[in-house]
Design a protein around this nucleic acid. Structure first.
Lengths: 340, 340
DNA sequence: CTGTTAGCGCTTTCAT
DNA sequence: ATGAAAGCGCTAACAG
């Protein structure tokens, strides 16, 4: 049986109240008494029952995070890094992190959020991969539940979020291709319901237009953010009558799939076909050829989102409601000059 | 303010106790009363305060999982998949999953476990990457705290665990290389303190001996399980006076690093140098060349470990204390016949 | 079948 | 400076 306040109180001959206050560091306890209590607690190996404390304080001191997964194999290293950032920051604030994995935009996912919110299992939640019409956000807003998101959205109400400037990123990456001489550029966008697709698509259109290039409709495609998806879409792209000379992929995983497709079509990546990705996950550098991509500081983003959520929970005013990071173009060997 | 039992009791004119029992499904409540109560609870939108319930029951209904991470970038997709298995199985038992990320075998990691165990934040924990002298296991055993592990170990006491037969795996993979004609085989083992290194190493020695081949000491190396680590070790291996014709890597990430090193040394992987990995993560299939590796059913393992832990928590007897999966050799293009 | 009473372990008025 | 008492919301032993 663990030691309770009552046990200590009995031992030192003071009331539970006084023991509680002494340990909590209130200043209305005699110095001598406090010393005695603190030392006794130490000796007895006292550790507060957090369940009791939580009930009393009506706070769980826990944050929730539902990771969007497709199959059982949630492979994107992206989430691992985000999770680490979130968790480490949470730990610094003495908060626990409750994690579950659910397929996005499904009843199962909705249930996971309901569980967190209406059963009050957590004090706040972190969202990622925001969607254009995001039921999660609507739900959280409606229930006035604290949250912060990695990703902006289009709802009226303002909420705390962190994002990477995907429009700028794709603009820069595509411009890099154009500077290399490419004109026939295809894009494999993420799924259309995702918010960051909107930005990346906008960046693509903006840069193409800026250079007087047309976006060929059959070259604007969508993939599911997996290697397999990228591979499949790239196969279609390369099987067409007219082939693009460069492909902008919505993330590194799809870029890797696209490179594989290129090889199978007998194209040398970086020479006959250029490919750029987005994320700069650890694979990118070690892929063959090394992948030109846009670096997102995911770990930092995780920390930042968490920090904002903590501020909300502490009723602090956020210095800025929306924090935008700039992706950094990492030029490697998967992109090269247009062969003449 | 959320609806409480008291609110319902007041409304229906029964005591809190009766309401509690009716809702809990006890059969000592009049059918009519129960119907009234259940319906009223429904109408009022009642949801139990789980904090109160937890305090009363002295159970958290939560499982803990500390992911071993090195830098901030915990990239191994391995953990993502394990997490999904764990979390989904936990959800089916109505348990929450508390996750944190800590560098293995450090004070920070020890603190994370103490937090979970002595603050009673969870009912049980899941371990992964067991170590030869595993302080975590010693700690949990000493405190009689329920846990289940992915990975065996060498402590006296028995505990519930799931593992993959790494000895068999490496035996088979290496045998595959030998059958292809390879004699000069190097191995990049995981760090020496990890338990699975012991098994994989044993498999390597056993198969080499079975074929009358010597293990050259300078070809038995260790890497840190990252692409970078595999790359660095392979570079050393390939810079030696005498080169191996095949490399067995401790996991897929290191194998990918090794392949990169090979390319930089002008070697064609699968022809001039064969490489095999371990895990079969999603990259393996999409790497270039596609990686020959050993498939571990990580997601299933996650579920299994969780299932065992749940059984322990329910005081059920485990059908088997140790569950061993067989890895499956996936032959792809990174391994090929020894060139003549 | 239902209610009374007690208690999980802690925090927090409010007296003294 | 300290203690008594109440209460967070729920469950459970015991009466009746």
């Amino acid at each position: 049986m663990p030691v309770t306040l009552k046990d200590i109180a009995r031992k030192v001959g003071f009331s539970v109240t006084t023991v509680s206050r002494a340990l909590a560091g209130y200043d209305d306890v005699a110095a001598k008494t406090r010393r005695l209590i603190v030392q006794t607690a130490e000796e007895m190996g006292y550790h507060p029952n957090i369940l009791a404390r939580r009930l009393q304080k009506q706070r769980t001191d826990t944050l929730g995070f539902v990771i969007p997964t497709f199959g059982p194999r949630f492979s994107d290293p992206f989430f691992g890094e985000l999770l680490a950032g979130l968790g480490n920051e949470a730990a610094e604030h003495d908060l626990d992190l409750l994690v579950s994995t659910r397929p996005p935009d499904t009843p199962k996912e909705a249930q996971a959020y309901e569980r967190l919110v209406r059963d009050r299992r957590v004090d706040g939640v972190v969202l990622t991969r925001t969607r254009i019409n995001d039921a999660r956000i609507a739900y959280l807003l409606e229930h006035d539940f604290p949250f912060a998101a990695f990703g902006r959205t289009q709802v009226e109400e303002a909420f705390a979020c962190v994002d990477v400037d995907g429009e700028l990123g794709v603009f820069n990456a595509t411009q890099h291709l154009i500077e290399l001489g490419h004109r026939d550029i295809a894009i494999i966008l993420p799924p259309l319901d995702l918010m960051f697709t909107v930005h990346r698509r906008a960046g693509f259109y903006r840069v193409m237009e800026a250079h007087g290039l047309a976006v060929r409709p059959e070259w604007e495609t969508n993939g599911d953010l997996t290697e397999h998806g990228g591979y499949a879409v790239a196969c279609r792209l390369l099987a067409g009558a007219r082939r693009p000379t460069a492909i902008v992929a919505g993330n590194d995983l799809m870029a890797i799939g696209a490179m594989r497709a290129a090889r199978e079509h007998g194209l040398s990546v970086g020479r006959e076909l250029s490919v750029v990705g987005f994320d700069d996950n650890t694979l990118a550098e070690h892929a063959h050829p090394a992948l030109t991509t846009l670096r997102q500081p995911i770990y930092e983003i995780g920390r930042q989102v968490c920090r904002m959520l903590v501020q909300i929970l502490n009723d602090e005013v956020l210095p800025e409601r929306e924090v935008l990071f700039e992706p950094e173009l990492m030029v490697r060997q998967s992109s090269g000059p247009l062969p003449v």
